[in-house]
Amino acid sequence: MTTTEAAISGEVTRRAATRRVAPRRAPGPAGARWRQRLEIAFFVTPALALMALFVVWPVVSAVRMSFYHWKGFGPMDELVGWRNYDYVLHDDVFRGAVTHNFVIVFASILIQLPLGLAVALLLNRRIRGRGLLRTIVFVPYVVAEVIAGVVWYQLLQPESGVIDGLIRSVGLTPPEQGFLGTPSLALGTVFVVLTWKYLGLAILLFLAGLQGVPDELFEAAQLDGASWWQVQRRIAVPLLGPTIRTWCFLSMIGSLQLFDMVWILTGGGPADATTTMATYLVNQGTGRHNYGIAGAASVVLFVIGFLMALIYQVFVLRRDTHEAR
């Protein structure tokens, strides 16, 4: 800190000095400019090096891999052009995986958003045990994904599982093959578990957003005779807009990259009913050693995610970033 400060103060006095001598030459001598560039390089290089190593290089090698037929060892020398992409894009399993990802994306926004908002608005009221309730709601999000997955996997076991027992105890018949073992129910079951897990994050974000709404606004509205409902609808929710839009973005990206919960609960089964793009590429890559196909699938996942992020940025988030400026 002291070196930086000294450097900056030195810079300032030197600039002042040069300006006195030659006031018209704005940027100062070439040496100072170079020093400034070096300083920028000094602070940016470590971050750039890490980013190049852990972000850019993997992306580049995945793209490269996607054009080869490669088993994961030995020389990567069998160039196959677009064959891997052709395979991935025509593979029913991959198409199913993309569909499942988008089902989760839209279901999250349609179900988790209203639910999260409702709970956040309720928890924003002055009620007894509010702190405790907030903690309880947030706990699933803090639990490690794998642990939560294993717990739900056991709860959802057919016959021996707790949930089947509960359903039986009220006189209903649980599905014969269990919730996770029945292809038509599996994706819905996974989504319920995901909602349980991630609703806490939505609520936390919305609550934080609500803290940012000045109390005066609520008071003023109440003085004008607005009901609780009207206050929420006309003031709280609109002012939460930027938070909601940011949450939707996070949720969308998370849904596209969905892997761990599905992997633990179903492994993509039964009968490929819950495959996601990420489970598909792990199955093809580390499972079958088709690293070229896995590479192509990962590039497709990257492109889809990138496009969605871009579109969202341009059409939805632009308002928020604009306002911030």
Partner: peptide, 13 residues
């Protein structure tokens, strides 16, 4: 029951 998602040899289930 549920054999389609049953694991081979991990745990009692």
């Amino acid at each position: 029951a549920g054999f389609l998602t049953t694991k081979a040899q991990e745990g009692a289930t």
